[in-house]
Design a protein around this nucleic acid. Structure first.
Length: 448
RNA sequence: GACCCUAUCGUCUAGCGGUUAGGACACCGCCCUUUCACGGCGGCGGCACGGGUUCGAUUCCCGUUAGGGUCGCCA
């Protein structure tokens, strides 16, 4: 039987990082088995269902590179979709639900109560076979002992989650339900519902939750709960995906950075860890740096230009070669695209501000004669490449008997306004002789 | 409160009866070096506790504790 799995988010206006991982694990399992990955939008709660909210999910999955074989193509509920088991929006599937509810009613498996329809839940414990956790026997809670039945259609006629989720999984031929562990106890209800419809339930795989650094369930309010955070902070999608793979699953062999193709080959449900994992931003940060370092220059440029545009720096105002050369000096240094700002902004400003902490030392009065000599040495250069600059600094320092740091540190501050940045000689070469001399002159005049 | 899941360094993990308990992130030193980053070397740091089973338990069983989740006419 061909594997059919689905990711079934509710359009809440953002894509939760835990939801993203659930989608990833479903996608991985589909790709590993050669099965089908389905995207279904659970928009039964009309109040918070907007096209924009659906687009957030679609765009988030696309950003991560999780392509679906069946499901909507756009956030338009009546728009086109892929696959022959649609519609893929629950709001478009009401007839199915009505038909199924009537069947339950006529078989005496559900009944009306105060305008709502309730499902006659079995009174015995339910065994949930789970590929990750093993067999779980769900006893009834105190509440359920009083009344185990649950509402499947609200008094306003709207079907509830448990009902529609099961009906859609049934009609879409879902073979494996891979979802968060927070659904584990729900599965008892779902299994009973499947049986009431006369079919065997799909296989279940409840994956552990992602906890925040405090150790509780990552909620909307937690920093980093929304996938959008990572898009905006300048993480590379492949790094985020790789990191998510490492939460609750391991490629073994003391490896951290694993190409997605290899993950697809190695991934399987029984090897998913059983315990929750805390989200560790530090490790994602490190991993992102790893991906940046091995990224092609073109991809780095693309992502870096976006990052700069977000903070109002329009690199289009500069020659393409200049922009590329500038960004090349940043690539080996940054771990995050958000950091490109402090590494590259001076390339794109006419007047730079000096970081105040550094000026006291580097722009001290006794430094001025040294910097004047350096300025003159630079002015006399015909070639202005990194090697020449390196040699010039060294020669001047040696001749005058200065530590090279006495030239290097102020020069960096003069050229970039900061104490930290790309390789000094390389960044000066990129800025070019004219800009460098301008910045020297401005700094020297400031020093009185 | 009831029900369910879980338990190896601070964090993510390897381990599947006998190991000096391995790796990664973070942190701390040293080296490299024009800052930072990278890289190299080294360090810190862990099997929650108590009973069993066994010649032998991190590993299997039970309990305790702790953490998490679920108990909606939300999804």
């Amino acid at each position: 039987m061909k594997v059919r799995v689905r990711f079934a988010p509710s359009p809440t206006g953002f894509l939760h990082i835990g939801g993203a991982r659930t989608a990833l694990f479903n996608w991985l399992y589909a790709r590993h088995t050669g099965g089908t990955f389905i995207l279904r939008i659970e928009d039964t709660d009309a109040a918070r269902n907007t096209q924009e909210a659906v687009d957030v999910i679609l765009n988030g999955l696309r950003w991560l590179g999780l392509d679906w074989d069946e499901g909507p193509i756009s956030g338009d509920v009546t728009g086109p979709s892929k696959g022959d088991r649609g519609p893929y929006f629950q709001s478009q599937r009401s007839e199915n639900y009505q038909r199924r509810v009537e069947a339950l009613l006529s078989h005496g498996l559900a009944y009306e109560h105060e305008g709502a329809v309730k499902f006659k839940m079995q009174r015995e414990p339910v065994v949930i076979p789970d590929l990750v956790v093993g067999n779980v026997t769900r006893e009834l809670t105190d509440r359920e002992k009083m009344d185990p039945d649950f509402v499947i259609v609200r008094s306003d006629g709207q079907p509830v989650f448990h009902l529609v989720n099961v009906i859609d999984d049934l009609e879409m031929g879902i073979t494996h339900v891979i979802r968060g562990e927070d659904h584990l106890t729900n599965s008892a209800k779902h299994i009973a519902l499947f049986r009431a419809f006369g079919v065997e339930p799909p296989k279940y795989a409840h994956i552990p939750l992602i906890l925040n650094p405090e150790g509780t369930k990552m909620s909307k309010r937690d920093k980093g709960a929304s996938l959008m955070t990572y898009v905006e902070e300048g993480y590379a999608p492949e790094a985020v995906v790789n990191y998510l793979c490492l939460l609750g699953w391991s490629p073994k062999g003391n490896r951290e950075k694993v190409p997605i193709q290899e993950v697809i080959e190695l991934f399987d449900l029984p090897q998913i860890l059983r315990h929750n994992a805390r989200f560790d931003l530090n490790k994602l940060h490190w991993l992102n740096g790893e991906y940046i370092r091995e990224m092609t220059a073109d991809r780095f440029h693309e992502l870096a230009v976006h990052a700069l545009a977000r903070i109002g720096i329009d690199t289009n105002r500069f020659p393409l070669d200049y922009v590329k050369a500038a960004l090349d000096t940043c690539k080996p240094k940054v771990k995050l695209f958000a950091e490109v700002r402090t590494f590259a902004d001076f390339y794109f400003k006419d007047e730079i501000d000096y970081a105040t902490e550094a000026t006291a030392q580097d722009f001290a009065p006794e430094a001025k004669p040294r910097l004047q000599q350096l300025r003159d040495a630079l002015a006399g250069l015909e070639k202005f490449d990194a090697d020449t600059l390196n040699a010039t600094f060294k020669a001047l320092a040696a001749r005058a008997g200065w530590s090279i740091g006495l030239l290097v540190h102020p020069a960096r501050l003069i050229c970039t306004g900061r104490a930290v940045g790309p390789s000094l000689y390389h960044l000066m070469a990129v800025l070019g002789k004219e800009r460098v001399l301008q910045r020297f002159d401005r700094a020297l005049s400031r020093m009185g």
